[in-house]
Write a protein that binds this DNA or RNA. Structure first.
Length: 205
DNA sequence: CAGTCGATGTACT
DNA sequence: GTACATCGACTGG
């Protein structure tokens, strides 16, 4: 195991089994990592969106527990991966207690380690920020697909390491991207001026 | 830079 | 049928 992993403090389940909006806010600045074919891929989280079964029509969990969204209802501290638009995967961090359908979508990551591997997995994009400035790009760069749905964030294969929090003055809030339902909810959070955020200015603040 | 549009599988009305 | 928590190619300025 690489030395930097042994020195990392991997966030444990108590971090995830809390209010989804709190977890979403605190995920900004933390380091997501994934072991991929002997390589370590990692990056700093800079953009997230919260989803919750209560009062949020856009959440996959809104209409109850089903095979597709089953992982969203499990105890916090694992990955919820879904397939969308016929060709893309997106990954969420599951939050709260068993039985509550809630999760945080990871939308923007600043790559730190394993960047050459990410470039290959992404097909060598011309612009550096196209590596991971979007939820489906992140899954491609980190090699995340159906097989990773439900995996625990315990550091065995993947996890999130502690890192300094982003100061409130640099955290921006907006409505979520790419959805029409529950547009009024300001449940998207991102680091101001980060080139790794999917959209610098939301269409509907 | 911004805007438009096709690709392509799955869940749901 | 229709919508979809998206992306990349393409256009025009």
């Amino acid at each position: 195991m690489p030395l930097h992993l042994t020195n990392m403090q991997v966030l444990d389940q108590t971090f995830y089994v809390r209010s989804t909006l709190t977890v979403a806010r605190e995920l900004l600045g933390k380091v997501f990592f994934r072991k991929y074919e002997g390589a370590l891929l990692s990056g700093r989280i800079v953009e997230v969106e919260a989803y919750h079964e209560e009062g949020d029509e856009a959440a996959h969990s809104y209409n109850g527990r089903r095979p597709r969204n089953e992982v969203m209802f499990r105890e916090g501290g694992r990955l919820y991966v879904y397939f969308t638009y016929g060709m893309h995967f997106c990954m969420n961090v599951v939050t709260e207690e068993e039985g509550v359908g809630a999760a945080v979508l990871i939308r923007g990551i600043e790559p730190l380690e394993g960047i050459d591997t990410m470039r290959e997995l992404r097909g060598h994009p011309r612009r550096e920020h196209d590596l991971t400035n979007g939820p489906a790009k992140i899954c491609q760069a980190f090699g995340i697909a159906r097989a990773e749905n439900g995996l625990p964030l315990d550091g065995a294969v993947l996890g999130i390491a502690n890192a300094p929090a982003i100061p409130a003055t640099h955290v921006m809030t907006s409505s979520r991207i790419g959805i029409s339902r529950s547009r009024v909810l300001p449940w998207r959070m991102y680091v101001e001026d980060s080139p790794w955020v999917s959209r610098a200015r939301p269409a509907h603040p």
